[in-house]
Simulated assay, not measured.
Amino acid sequence: MANAERLDRERVIKAAVELLDSDGLDALSTRRLGTVLNSSPNVMYWHVGSMENLVGLATDQVFAELTLAIEGASWRDDLAQTARDLRLLFSRHPWLTEAFSTHPRIHGPAIVRFQNHLLQVCSRAGFEGFDLDWAGASVFTQVLGDAWGRTPSPMPKDRTTTPTEIVEQVRGDLADYPLLLERYEALANADPGTVDEASFEFGLTVLLDGLQARLNQRPPAP
C-alpha cells in the first residue's frame, strides 16, 4: 500500500467526490477511499479529519464549479441564472441533496463565495436587513427542494414502475377524488423531461415574482 507521504488532501477530496458521484453519500467511507487510493483507511484521517469534515470538503470542492457571474440585464436575470446553474450542479452531483440535508453546517471558501454572490445580487435588487438574508436563502431552498423531488426512490434493479402503472395502482384510492386522478393521468401521459423543466421554471418565476412583490411593498423613501 502507498504510505501517507504519497497522498495529499487534494487527492483524497478528489477521490471522495468521484466516489460520491458514482455511488452516493452512503458509499463514502475511509475503507472505500483507502481501497481507491491504495492506502490504509486510517491515513484518510490525517488529511481530512472526520468523515463529516470530508463531506464538507467534497461539497465545497464541487461548489467551486459555479461561475457566479453578475452580468444580466436585471437582478432577476442574475438570480434566475444562479438558480439554474445551481440546479445543474445538483444534477451533476445528486449526493449534494442528502449532504445538505444531513450536514447543515457545511462550510468552505467556495460555499462562502456562493453565499456572498446571492447577497450581492439580492442587495442589487434592493433588499436590506433580514430580507436580504431571506431572499438569497429562498433561492437556495427552491433549488434544494427541486433536487430533492427529483431524487429517485430506491427500487430493485430488475423492476421499473412506469407512470401508467402507478396510476393504475392508485386509481381505486382516487375514485372519490376525480380532480386528483385527472392530474395523475395528465402527468403519466406527459413527457417527464418537459414537465420537470417546466415545473422548475414555474416555481422559479413564482419565487421571483414574490421577491419583486416584496420589494414593491417597501415604504417610499423619505
Rank of each mutant, 00 (worst) to 15 (best):
F127D: 03
Q169H: 05
Q142T: 06
Y184A: 01
L118K: 02
I166S: 06
V139M: 02
L119M: 15
F130N: 09
G126M: 03
D176C: 11
G193V: 14
D176N: 11
A188T: 11
L174A: 12
P152V: 04
E128T: 03
G126F: 05
M155I: 04
S138Y: 09
Q169R: 00
L181H: 12
T151G: 00
G136E: 01
D191W: 13
D131A: 00
T164P: 03
K157N: 14
L180Q: 10
H117N: 05
V167T: 04
L179N: 12
D133F: 07
T194K: 14
T162Q: 01
T194D: 10
H117V: 12
P178Q: 04
L119G: 13
A190P: 15
K157I: 12
A190V: 15
E128D: 10
R183N: 07
F140Y: 08
L132E: 00
T194Y: 04
L180S: 11
Q120S: 11
P163F: 10
T160E: 08
D191Q: 15
R159K: 14
G145T: 07
R150G: 09
A137N: 03
V170M: 13
L174F: 13
V139L: 06
V195N: 06
A188M: 06
Y177R: 08
L180I: 15
D133N: 03
R150A: 13
V121R: 00
A175M: 08
L174I: 07
W134M: 13
A125D: 07
L174N: 01
S153W: 15
A135M: 01
P163L: 05
S138L: 09
F140S: 09
Y184S: 04
V170D: 06
G193P: 14
G126I: 10
L119E: 01
K157L: 14
L119K: 10
S123P: 00
T194I: 14
L132Q: 03
D131F: 07
L180H: 13
A186L: 00
Y184Q: 08
F140E: 09
G129W: 01
G126Y: 07
